[in-house]
């Protein structure tokens, strides 16, 4: 008998991983759904009778009108950002600093967290009419509403991040004799940055929602106003162009925030 034991064929074949997906295919996969949606849109618009083309315009017509309306859209963007930028910046600064203070102090947590639990979930849209009535200008009331809406996610995440500062960082800060404010500024703030950015992403989404909704109410310019205005005049191709454009602006803002996050939080966390 031979000493060599014949090796049985492996009953379970090794899983074929085939290595990483080639880069070209990654980008192809990434755009495939966009192409599919565009194709369905084009086909539906093509099948529909011509009389419906102003209710359901083809992608080409929409793009053409988007191009035509670009100057007006750019002005609207400027107007919207005059509300968005100060409101969002204010929400981030207030939310992050207040969140750090509250997250870093047991007593402040006891005071503020129950309040936040009740007030934060209220949909900020309900404040819009009253804010417009109460504050002198539309812009100031819109800034107030957008700020309020994006404040809560930043605040809640910042305080959660401060609570979640890893024990070793806290120990090191204590061993180095940091004061509470030194600890907040040099340890808790950077350690909580991933949380804060998370809140900033959610907050930015809220800011765009509140901005466009507020503009529907009483604005004379802006992106939300643009969409509302042409819908009122049943100029649906222009309205659709406005929606596409607003989507693009939102996407670009979010991507910019993502890039900023990557740049600021450079250490592994």
């Amino acid at each position: 008998m031979s000493a060599i034991i014949e090796r049985q064929a492996n009953p379970i074949p090794a899983r074929k991983t085939g290595g990483p997906v080639p880069r070209l295919f990654v980008s192809l996969y990434g755009v495939s759904l966009f192409i599919a949606v565009l194709a369905v849109w084009a086909v539906v618009a093509w099948i529909l009778p011509t009389k419906h083309q102003y209710l359901f315009p083809s992608p080409w017509l929409t793009l053409k009108i988007l191009w035509e309306s670009l100057p007006e859209l750019l002005v609207s963007t400027g107007s919207s950002f005059l509300i968005l930028a100060p409101a969002y910046a204010g929400a981030v600064i207030l939310g992050a600093s207040w969140g750090l203070l509250v997250g870093g102090s047991e007593r402040l947590r006891l005071i503020f967290i129950p309040f936040a639990r009740v007030v934060a979930p209220v949909p900020p849209t309900v404040y819009i009419p009253y804010a417009i009535a109460l504050l002198p200008t539309f812009r100031s009331s819109a800034i107030f509403i957008v700020l309020l809406a994006s404040f809560w996610p930043v605040f809640i995440n910042a305080s959660a991040g401060t609570l979640a500062v890893p024990e070793q960082h806290r120990d090191n800060a204590r061993a180095l004799g940091f004061t509470h404010f030194q600890y907040l500024r040099r340890v808790a703030f950077p350690a909580a940055l991933p949380f804060i950015f998370n809140g900033m992403h959610v907050g930015m989404g809220m800011a765009f929602i509140m901005l466009t909704v507020a503009e529907l109410f009483g604005s004379t310019s802006g992106l939300g106003r643009f969409v509302q205005y042409y819908a009122d005049y049943a100029d649906f191709p222009r309205m659709l162009a406005g929606i596409l454009y607003t989507g693009l602006i939102t996407f670009l803002s979010m991507s910019g925030l993502g890039l900023l996050e990557k740049k600021i939080i450079f250490w592994p966390h």
Binding site: P166, Q168, D171, N172, A175, L176, R186, V187
Partner: peptide
């Protein structure tokens, strides 16, 4: 409570990852 008279070195993660080495030491 802790005091600067008793410095401590932990097993790992003593340095703050967001500060350069020099800044970490400069804190002390």
């Amino acid at each position: 409570g802790p005091s600067l008279e008793r410095g401590i070195v932990f097993q790992e993660y003593s340095l703050f990852p967001w500060f350069r080495l020099r800044d970490n030491v400069a804190l002390a």
